[in-house]
């Protein structure tokens, strides 16, 4: 698959999306541009004038301490949080996202830290939650949904076999597969992954990393929020560090060391402002 944005993600009447889609990967119009986004909760600036972009087939690592504003920023993009100010552009075109449904029409899918799955339902029901396939007379087409889910899992996680049991009884990795399958089924071109490996064991973490590489190869743009600096270094093309609601800096992964990124996270300064004494004091 090439890095062409899904045509269904933006209305075809928009000229910007047509020009953006034809261009090559990293030099194209960004898939996502967040411009000067601000969110405050009762005087606390959770996100304070943040600008960020994402290109097709790119993994953008988003790191920072607790309360740095990473999750709030991503909630803005996924429609779960309305920004107080700022602009969102998808493929160069300004859009307004007020709820998860709006985000979805622009091809944005979120895989939440808490795994937004209905534990009592089976995998196909979760994959199609809120967008169930129906046959004539509006009856749920469970067979078609199970079939589509089986096909997806064949690609994502061939060992997955529990299509008829409630996802509550599945392992963390399997549940993560269901969550990702859910995003993929609806032609997500922009994926937000909030701590995708937080609840997983080593083998399952490796599985999810492999999955992310595959999605990237398919031209999907990914925002990866993680506490795990190794995850971020392993998978990201660029890394953005947030501190107290602001972007400390956005760097290419190949340009920095893990120590430099850690310093950005902890000290809240860009790498060139960090003195060698400060860097040493971290160890």
């Amino acid at each position: 698959m090439t890095a062409v944005p899904d045509p269904s993600a933006t209305p075809s009447s928009a000229p910007a999306s047509a020009s953006g889609g034809a261009a090559a990967a990293t030099h194209a119009t960004p898939m996502v541009e967040l411009v000067d986004i601000r969110v405050s909760f009762g005087g606390v600036h959770a996100v304070d004038g943040v600008s960020l972009d994402l290109y097709p087939g790119e993994v953008m690592g988003l790191v920072g301490g607790n309360g740095a504003g990473k999750s709030t920023l991503m909630r803005v993009l996924s429609g779960a949080q309305s920004p107080d100010a700022g602009e969102i552009r998808i493929n160069g075109r300004r859009v307004s996202i007020h709820n998860p449904r709006d985000a979805r029409t622009h091809g944005i899918e979120t895989i939440y830290q808490t795994l937004a799955l209905a534990d009592n339902l089976d995998a196909p029901a979760n994959v199609f939650l809120g967008r169930e396939k129906v046959s004539g007379f509006g009856t749920l087409d469970d067979a078609a949904m199970e079939s589509a889910t089986r096909e997806l899992m064949e690609r994502l996680n061939p060992r997955f076999k529990n299509f008829k049991t409630a996802v509550a009884s599945l392992s963390g990795g399997q549940r993560q597969s269901v969550a990702i399958a859910r995003a993929i089924e609806f032609n997500a071109t922009i994926l937000i992954m909030d701590e995708p490996t937080a609840a997983l064991g080593p083998a399952e973490t490796a599985q999810v990393r492999e999955l992310i590489r595959q999605l990237k190869a398919d031209g999907i743009g990914i925002f990866l929020i993680s506490h795990d600096i190794h995850d971020v270094f392993d998978l990201s093309d660029r890394i953005s560090v947030m501190h107290h609601g602001e972007i400390v800096g956005t760097v290419k992964r190949t340009d920095v060391t893990t120590d430099q990124v850690l310093a950005m996270i902890i000290l809240g300064k860009p790498p060139d402002e960090v003195t060698s004494e400060e860097l040493a004091s971290l160890h």
Binding site: A80, N99, P100, R101, R104, T110, Y112, T114, A116, L117, A118, D119, N120, L121, A125, L129, G130, R131, E132, V134, G138, T139, L140
Partner: peptide
């Protein structure tokens, strides 16, 4: 069991947050 309405009711009971986030 066979309608969206029912599926949504069960989803709300299973995980109300997930139900909202999935656009129900």
């Amino acid at each position: 069991e066979r309608r969206r309405f029912g599926r949504n009711v069960y989803a709300i009971g299973g995980n109300p947050v997930a139900a909202v986030l999935s656009g129900i």
